[in-house]
Nucleic acid binder design. Structure first.
Length: 422
RNA sequence: CGGGGUGUGGCGCAGUUGGCUAGCGCGCCGCGUUUGGGACGCGGAGGUCGAAGGUUCAAGUCCUUUCACCCCGACCA
């Protein structure tokens, strides 16, 4: 992509109505556009990041036999009445509306009931299980107060997966597989080292649910962690969990964190509530077992910005960066332009995502500042100097020194390894 | 939902105790000079001051209502 053609622009001024670091930087750099409080649109730059995050999640979900689908945002009221969750006193984040004929419908804040209802039609016997489905969907939640930029909006993208099983043991095994898949996801997203599987409250049907929490100053949760033992407990359930785990409170370190994933074991509760039964080996009708697994895609994006940004701007991990390289020719000499055009073509052909700053009017400082603000992992400079020496100047976003390399080495270094097939 | 705060060109801001054609920085357009960390000069475009109502000879400025946005708290499968 050429910078001259990208419709978004960077800005030196941060918007006054945003305080959170993630929103300020994402807006200044042109990744998101604020539509209203807690509601953000994603520009081509922002969408590339979201898609990169989704790709990683998708690969890992597929690897554990998740099947991707997509549900709807309009949901029938009756479904939710069965589980008492249509009631605003039970679920206080509903957006509700009506069809022209006055039929009440809800706007998806979750898809648990609708997914189960759909499964009713396909799952009749233990032979149809297990099954695991997931989607990337927009959730609409009428939060009293939006805050923290894209980390807690009224409209956001979530990956939610649901697994159905014939018995508790099968669910348990799969649940543990998902935990491992989630760990791989957070590692690949670059936040693995600071992300903990956390004991949290899970309502009546699970003793504890598991949250995935990433240490992050901008987060809303408080965690007590033991780095050595890899233990983390949400403050909400500290006393119970300490008893359960046999650790002392004063061994634990208190940190702020953001929830980046949450998994629940519903057991047979939802199945019984909704009367979705399967036939077992003996031909008897039995409730099935359900678990759900969420990852806040847009929230993860915000957490990554919060965690890695420096005083110059965003710092994307290579795995989610919208582009791998920021290519900045300096000056207007025809040799420089020709070399840059050529390299742009060569890198693109090699599968490297390049943001090519082809603006001839922009000065060096402007290009460098944009490269930094945008958080592109590598910057390549081409100038009269580099052309003369037949080298390229490469600088990782996180380092202050540049290094001279020849073109072949640069391409070799930056070209992606082929993805594993799933 | 309780408390606090803010709305003035695309963005960030200033506008004295009400007073004359509403300014500044960034950005934008044109011309020229520049060109390794956000250049400079000259010339331009762009605002019914969130909205509605009121007070006044006169309202960005005062009053009322309302909307939006932000922060703290509460809330948060």
């Amino acid at each position: 992509m050429r910078v001259s053609r990208l419709f978004t622009k960077t800005s030196k001024n941060a918007p006054a109505d945003e305080v959170s670091k993630n929103a300020q930087l994402l807006i200044r750099a042109g990744f998101v556009y604020k539509v209203m409080a807690g509601v953000y649109a994603y520009t081509p730059l922002g969408l590339r990041v979201l898609e990169n995050i989704k790709r990683i999640v998708r690969e890992e979900m597929n690897a554990i036999q998740g099947q991707e689908l997509i549900m709807t945002n309009l949901q029938p009221k009756e479904l939710w009445e069965v589980t008492t969750r249509w009631d605003d006193k039970v679920v206080d984040v509903w957006f509700k509306t009506r069809l022209k004929d006055e039929t009440e419908v809800g706007l998806a804040w979750s898809h648990e009931e609708p997914i189960m209802e759909m499964m009713r039609q396909y799952i009749e016997s233990y032979k149809d299980l297990p099954v695991s489905v997931y989607q990337f969907q927009t959730k609409l939640r009428n939060e009293l107060r939006a805050k923290s930029g894209i980390m807690r909006g009224r409209e956001f993208v979530m990956k939610d997966m649901y697994s159905l099983h014939a018995d508790a043991k099968d669910l348990e095994d799969y649940y543990n597989k998902v935990i491992e898949a989630y760990k791989r996801i957070y590692n690949r997203l670059g936040i693995g080292d600071d992300t903990y599987v956390t004991f949290a409250s899970g309502g009546a049907f699970t003793k504890f649910s598991h949250e995935f929490q990433t240490i992050c100053e901008a987060g809303e949760d408080v965690l007590y962690i033991h780095r050595g033992k890899n233990i983390a407990v949400n403050e909400e359930v500290l006393d119970e969990a300490i008893r359960e785990l046999g650790v002392k409170k004063d061994e634990l370190e208190k940190v702020k964190s953001a929830e980046v994933g949450n998994i629940f074991n519903f057991g047979t509760e939802k199945s019984m509530q909704m009367d979705i039964l399967i036939t077992d080996h003996q031909g008897k009708r039995q409730p099935l077992y359900l678990a759900s697994y969420g990852i806040g895609i847009t929230r993860v994006m915000g957490v990554i910005v919060e965690k890695f940004a420096d005083d110059k701007g965003i710092v994307w991990p290579e795995s989610v960066a919208p582009f791998t390289v920021y290519l900045a020719p300096l000056g207007e000499s025809t040799d420089v332009i020709a070399e840059a055009d050529d390299l742009y073509k060569a890198l693109t052909t090699a599968g490297v995502a390049v943001l090519y700053d082809d603006r001839t009017v922009a000065r060096a400082g402007e290009k460098f500042a944009d490269a930094d603000l945008l958080g592109i992992p590598y910057r390549i400079v081409i100038s009269d100097k580099t052309v003369a020496s037949k080298q390229l100047e490469l600088k990782p976003r996180t380092e202050s020194h540049t290094q001279l390399m020849d073109r072949e080495s640069v391409i070799k270094k930056l070209a992606p390894t082929p993805p594993r097939l799933l």
